[in-house]
Amino acid sequence: MIRPHFPTRFLQWGTPMRERTSGRTVGGFRNLFLQGPAVTLLLLWMLVPLGMTLWFSFQRYNLINPMISGFAGWDNYTYLLTDPALWTAMGNTLLLVGWVLAISVIGGTLLAVLFQQEFFGRGIARLLVIAPFFVMPTVGALVWKNMLMHPVNGVFAWLSNLLGLPVIDWFSSMPLTSIIIIVSWQWMPFALLILLTAIQSLDDDQVEAARMDGAGPLAIFWFITLPHLKRAISVVIMIEMIFLLTIFAEIFVTTSGGPGLASTNLAYFIYIRALLDFDVGGASAGGVIAIILANIVAIFLIRTVAKNLET
């Protein structure tokens, strides 16, 4: 391993002889020793399950029926890809990810601009508005399901009655929309938290100069604030995407993927295959598809972060 700044270190370290004779290997061994445990653990955590998922996806393997065994070739994949349920789940996944992203990113950006302004009690208002991000997903989903969206005793039903509007039975008439609302409520504060931090590094002088030149608030937002937030927004989008692709707990405690498949996403679909149908082969093939999807997003995220490391 090559160590930059070697000459200065070598002068300052006070052990010139040892450093000089075995400088490269000493540094190399030291790094290996220090980083070794973390790297080894993560390598095992990644490769072993990944390899097993790939292997299982080509096997006939059912947990409750040992008679089903042997090499399956592409059978698990063809079976899965021709199953309309998979495509329903994929469609739901895309709808869920797309809508939550749109709501949380647009909402988060506008709120970041609002909560950046001077107003009374700003500190406390900020704490309140980011709070949902720290709430356990099972708690958040159940509070919405029982206390807000319940068609008889929920707050929304009471409000609808008060305004003379028809009462909506959220989870049976629009299950996916309900889940999108709940998940957006959890993730918009995340976008806000990140973007509020990013907006604080905006140069006040630049904004002031634009204002002097006669730029209105909208022009300032569009031509100065938004370009400044570009990178932060792209990071938010990618991180949210990775989490949103595999939303599970919110569906588990509210609709269980139903009615029918109406709110089943890819993660829930694989869960049904795996732990309810005990079809290891099929679930693993689904897992491989989920991994491929996540990696498409991941490549872009890693590129953005890498760009940041260099500067």
């Binding site: 790297v39 998922t53 299982f56 993660a267 693993s284 897992g287 989920a290």
Partner: peptide, 16 residues
């Protein structure tokens, strides 16, 4: 290390 975080848990549910 960051890339290991991208492995969706549901993708490795079965082996784990």
């Amino acid at each position: 290390m960051l890339s290991t975080k991208m492995l969706p848990p549901v993708g490795v549910l079965m082996p784990v």
